[in-house]
Simulated assay, not measured.
Amino acid sequence: MTISRSNPESLHVTPGYHHVTVVSAGRTAHLAGQCPLDAAGVLVGPGDFGAQVDQIVANTLVALGSVGTGPEQVVRTVIYVVTADREVLAEVWRRFQASQLASAFTTASTLLGVAQLGYPGQLVELDVTAALPG
């Protein structure tokens, strides 16, 4: 399996992600939206974007590991954040980029401010697609 990432010259410069990700034919894993819930299903960090990102990173690493892959094989991410504040969006992006999941965000990525997510108090959710090895 080969994963290539590129930024066409005529598109804007990105803050770390690539505009285009191409994967040679193979299997993919589509993770359910990763939420800031602990193993008991309890929301982590009510009102705390950073704590929620950290829990989502931990959960995503477990989910990826369960199918024999890791952040370097991620080919698409979508981050949902309950905010209309650009600085909050930027801080969440920076927190993900500084995490153990950072290499996942060098691929095709989208960051969205939304009105509400599924769990009361939930501020962040991450949608991930990864290419699976052989």
Rank of each mutant, 00 (worst) to 15 (best):
G45V: 07
V124W: 04
R94H: 10
Q73A: 14
E125L: 07
Q34M: 15
V53L: 00
A40H: 11
V124I: 02
L112S: 13
D85H: 10
L101E: 03
H18K: 07
G16A: 06
Y119G: 00
S66F: 06
G70N: 15
N59M: 03
L123P: 03
D54Q: 13
Q100D: 11
Q116F: 00
Q52E: 05
F105Y: 10
Q73T: 04
E91N: 09
V74N: 02
S109F: 05
L89P: 04
E72S: 12
V124R: 03
Q55G: 00
Q116S: 10
F96I: 06
T110M: 08
L31W: 03
V42Q: 13
L37H: 10
L61A: 09
G33H: 01
S109R: 04
P71G: 12
N59H: 03
L117V: 08
V78C: 09
S109K: 03
A130M: 10
G70F: 02
T110D: 12
L11T: 05
L101G: 01
V42N: 08
G70Y: 04
L126E: 04
A104K: 01
Q55A: 13
G16C: 05
E9D: 13
P133R: 12
I79A: 06
A32C: 08
E72V: 12
Y17F: 15
L11G: 03
P36E: 09
Q97N: 13
A51S: 15
V81K: 02
G16F: 06
W93I: 07
G50S: 14
N59S: 07
G134Q: 11
V124F: 01
Q73S: 14
V62C: 04
A115I: 06
A39K: 10
Q55M: 09
A39Y: 02
T83E: 11
A39N: 13
V75P: 07
L112W: 08
A98F: 05
L117E: 01
Q100S: 13
T60I: 01
A98W: 04
A131L: 13
W93Q: 14
S103G: 02
A98T: 12
R27C: 08
N7A: 05
P46I: 00
G113W: 05
P36G: 10
E9H: 12
G26L: 10
L101T: 02
Y119I: 04
L126R: 05
Q97L: 07
A58D: 05
L126P: 03
V20P: 01
G65K: 09
E91I: 01
G26D: 12
V53D: 08
Q73Y: 04
S103I: 05
A104M: 10
A84K: 10
G113M: 13
T83K: 06
S10C: 12
